[in-house]
Design a protein around this nucleic acid. Structure first.
Length: 521
RNA sequence: GCAUGAGUAGCUCAGCGGUAGAGCACGCGCCUCUUAAGCGCUUGGUCGAGAGUUCGAAUCUCUCCUCGUGCACCA
């Protein structure tokens, strides 16, 4: 078919074969009829020499711009100002006399009075459907009922919609359908668009903050021979030419540290991370993490920096650092609480884990508190299990929990004062981990020992233990400066600042199981 | 992976052993300063899929699929 040919190509139902939303591979008679009605109108446009899919439209104003510019215009007052607007039709009243046209800034009503339109354009209004895109030329007038409108003198169809949109009054609520057809969700639900806008703003403000502090944005490999830097199961893929299985990264940590070793003193990456784990309202298989590293600082400096960054990002995004999340007031404005993990456990349970000297003692104490243990294999991992079970969910306001057990922190520098602990913190808000940072381990011998321990776990069947990355050890052997580093879950931060209950509400296209296919395995 | 709830028209939902319903949307007609516009008429369904129980299944039972929520894993 020639590009731009109008009216010559025959319209076939099968040419546009996608079923309507609710797709199960079957198109009902009703769905077929609804689409056929629209295809008939599409054909009518073409028969009348109108291209229903034109190339461009020159607009003079966006909806919000007009609403602002003419906000003081009184009802039934008309101006001579000619404007051109365009957008998607979401509603019409009075037999297409009034059209609600939406662009990404908001709504402007079109007023299509028969006195102002040619007979042809008046008649063609009947070929429009809700969901179509159109552009309109006209003057500004506020109607008798007080609605600012473009009194249309001419209009063009900009795209014919073939599928019906959900009912505008009841909305689009079916959660599964919303995630599977996110474009429809975005058309119907402003909150989805708002969340994505805020997500963009949050990331922008984060970049601005880091850039202002002389951080360099970098990109590191997504495809890795060994997936290290975190405890998680990786996705596996295959490179044909190299004949090599590769892993999708589960963290950016080990490569960012190589950059520190290479002399880049402040680096960060905002990147997609892939973890082959369960899904929940807080977990998507692919998610976005900010990791940043800075030479010559320790975890105390890092907490100060993190707190300031989060406060600034919240203020710049929301206009305030105090907000509420799921009915709770959360303050990023007040100083974040900071307490040692041992003290946090003592505060909630009364148990002083410092008195537990062995794995066995820790295990007994944990069981005494009713903490369920399964794969814990060390004193430190038991202490962490107690913390996660008893304390984590109580940390509603932003809190730094500091000084973690060494056994669960293979990349962290030993604590300068406390035996068996490392200089690591995690930050919690609303009972959820938001960030994880530490004084980075820089001693190559210590690092090798720790990773060899991980290697033993891996060999023993722990699928989440870290692999021994020899090149990483070698890099560290060249000398790594004292360094602080942190990872912040961007999706979870966006959830907080948009008051979203599920991570899927802040991801444009969350991972879904496909329909109509049997899952192998 | 475990538990639990859900899946009925394009959308939102009712029906829960006895002929598959409503509102909105769609189509047709009336209506030209409306705001979920209004009025009238009409159309529209493998009741997620399959098997079973029953004279009879959207409804009861079983299996499967998908989604939500919680738990597990994890961030």
């Amino acid at each position: 078919m020639n590009k731009g040919t109008i009216g010559s190509d025959e319209i076939k139902m099968s040419a546009v074969s996608n079923p309507t939303p609710g797709d199960d591979g079957h198109e009902s008679a009703e769905a077929s009829k609804l689409k056929a009605d629209r295809l008939r109108k599409l054909a009518a446009f073409k028969e009348q020499g109108v291209n229903p899919y034109p190339y461009k439209y020159v607009r003079t104003h966006k909806a919000a711009q007009l609403q602002e510019q003419y906000k003081d215009l009184a009802a039934e007052v008309e101006t001579e100002d000619v404007v051109q607007v365009c957008g998607r039709i979401l509603n019409s009243r009075n037999s297409w006399m009034f059209i609600d046209l939406f662009d990404d800034s908001g709504k402007i009503q079109l007023f299509c009075h028969k006195q102002n339109l040619s007979e042809e354009k008046l008649a063609q209004l009947k070929l429009l459907d809700k969901g179509d895109y159109m552009g309109a030329t006209g003057t500004i007038r506020r109607t008798k009922q007080g609605e600012l409108s473009v009194k249309v003198t001419d209009w063009q169809i900009l795209s014919k919609s073939l599928l019906p949109l959900p009912d505008s009054w009841e909305g689009f609520k079916d959660v599964e359908a919303r995630y599977r057809h996110r474009y429809v969700d975005m058309i119907m639900n402003e909150s989805v668009r708002d969340n994505l806008r805020k997500r963009s703003l949050i990331i922008r403000h984060m970049r601005n903050f880091l850039d202002q502090h002389d951080y360099l944005e970098v990109e590191t490999p997504t495809l890795q021979v060994e997936a290290g830097g975190a405890d998680a199961r990786p996705f596996i893929t295959h490179h044909n030419t190299l004949g090599l299985d590769l892993y999708l990264r589960i963290a950016t940590e080990l490569h960012l540290k190589r950059l520190i070793i290479g002399g880049m003193e402040k680096v960060y990456e905002i990147g997609r991370i892939f973890r082959n784990e369960g899904m929940s309202t807080r977990h998507n298989p692919e998610f976005t993490m900010l990791e940043m590293y800075c030479a010559y600082g320790d975890y105390n400096d890092l907490m100060t920096f993190t707190e300031k960054m989060l406060r600034t990002v919240a203020e710049n995004t929301l206009g305030t650092a105090d907000f509420h999340y799921q009915g709770q007031d959360i303050s990023f404005a007040k100083p974040f609480r900071k307490l040692r993990m041992n003290d946090a456990i003592k505060e909630i349970t009364g148990l002083d884990v410092a008195t537990l000297k062995s794995f066995e003692e820790a295990k007994q104490a944990a069981l005494g508190l009713g903490v369920k243990l399964d794969k814990q294999d060390s004193r430190g991992s038991v202490v962490n299990a107690i913390f996660e079970d008893k304390v984590e969910h109580t940390l509603i306001q932003p809190t730094f929990i500091i000084d973690y057990p060494v056994e669960i922190s293979p990349l962290t520098k030993a604590h300068r004062e406390h035996e068996g602990e490392v200089e690591r913190f995690e930050m919690f808000v609303f009972g959820r981990e938001l960030a994880n940072g530490y004084s980075e381990l820089t001693d190559p011998h210590d690092q090798r020992t720790r990773l060899e321990e991980q290697g033993r776990k891996k060999a023993a069947g722990d699928v989440e233990a870290m692999p021994l990355d020899l090149d990483f050890i070698m890099a560290m052997e060249y000398g790594m400066p004292p360094t602080m580093g942190i990872g912040i879950g961007i999706d979870r931060l966006v959830m907080l600042l948009t008051d979203s209950a599920s991570i899927r509400d802040v991801i444009a296209f969350p991972t879904m199981k496909p329909l109509g296919k049997q899952n192998k395995e």
